[in-house]
Nucleic acid binder design. Structure first.
Lengths: 207, 207
DNA sequence: TTTTATCTCCGCCTTAGGTCTGAGTTTTAT
DNA sequence: ATAAAACTCAGACCTAAGGCGGAGATAAAA
């Protein structure tokens, strides 16, 4: 049957690609028409095979999924992001780039097949928490982006265990100024002391 | 043949498991005897199937790979960590926990099959840069096991951003005593203040 | 142009954090 | 039984940290 949904699989892990091909192989109404292990290859293969749907991983060498999505979003192909973790830093950029659906790799075979069919039907699919995150992201932006650039610099240094004196020397400013920044940081982040700030910085990868 | 190497696959991604099963299916001398999608399930399945080798992912719900490894290291099974990224924060803890080999998911089928056979032969396998990282880690012994039990407790609380007063109340001891412990901790870990101690605690998963 | 935000710095004051010395009690190892 | 750690606490002492209020300079936004 030539009416099968043509799927392109993009992932840098051999195993995942093999798993997907095996997965989709049992579905009668779809066929994997190509595989790619990075963004560049994805673009080439997409030209060759003009797929209906692209299953796209995000973290890859050479060209990551976001860049590739920006390019491929202009084609007719529906792009379904299929990634390991629910990462704010990737989720929003890739949706902006033109991704159609967003699934996690913890998805079952059925869920993925389902998302592919829905995509062909102009219906996007988002996995559970993704939707919530989207909303939560709308209301409460992470507190630390209320910080000014300078404050973020200071927080970063606190996160490295620097004292106020260290920081003042590193930024070529007075120690009083550093104290002012620290006070503002603690107030904005609703923390009590620099120790908690250091923990915050590390937990939020601001170091 | 009953002499096949019995392999248990532990990963929270259906696809990866399916990929691995497909991969290993073509190898004549090994057989996948079970699959698990988290640490807890891994322990159950290991009891049922008593595998020779366990392919273990690290990031999973319920019980992560490090915890599971701690438990399963006591069995005869050789544990091969098979994870996405080369992360210091995971590498050393899991090796300490008793993992036998450490591979990345970018590995090819051959490399994985090879690592399994070598494991049966008491030969560990480490992917590329892992070995270097290991050596670098050996030289610098983890200083924090010079700490006494009480000191570790205090360090843990510092790592949660607690003040000396908080800690004294939580442990039902005087604030002076807490100070004594803190001084000892800083001296033993060669740190300068509680902020650095908090960072240390978090980086070394002592929270 | 006027307002608003940011970055800089001052002085004063209080407290938490940390060092040092010393010492009594309990656990654990030998 | 004896020695060695570990846990507890005290007093004296010093410093870094942080709050509070004020303020000048600059730059961006309204």
């Amino acid at each position: 049957m030539d009416n099968k949904i043509k799927v392109l699989v993009v992932d840098d892990h051999d195993m995942v690609r093999m798993g997907l091909v095996t997965y989709l192989g049992v579905e009668e109404d779809m066929a994997v028409v190509g595989e790619a292990c990075n963004g560049e290859e994805a673009i080439t293969k997409a030209k060759e095979t003009s797929p209906d749907v692209i299953l796209m991983d995000l973290l890859m060498e050479k060209m990551n999924g976001i860049e590739a999505t920006k390019v491929l979003a202009k084609t007719k192909a529906k792009i379904i992001v299929l990634t390991s973790y629910l990462d704010d830093e990737m989720l929003f950029p890739v949706m902006d780039a033109g991704a159609f659906s967003y699934l996690l790799k913890t998805s079952t075979a059925d869920e993925i097949a389902d998302a592919i069919r829905k995509a062909m039907n102009e219906e996007p699919t988002f996995q559970g928490q993704v939707t919530q995150k989207m909303f939560r992201h709308m209301r409460e932006k992470p507190k630390h982006d209320e910080l000014t650039k300078r404050e973020r610099e200071v927080l970063c240094l606190i996160g490295q265990g620097k004292t106020n004196k260290d920081i003042s020397e590193e930024l070529y400013i007075g120690i009083k100024t550093v104290k002012t920044h620290v006070s503002h940081i603690l107030a904005k982040l609703e923390l009590e002391d620099r120790t908690q700030a250091a923990i915050y910085a590390n937990k939020h990868q601001l170091v």
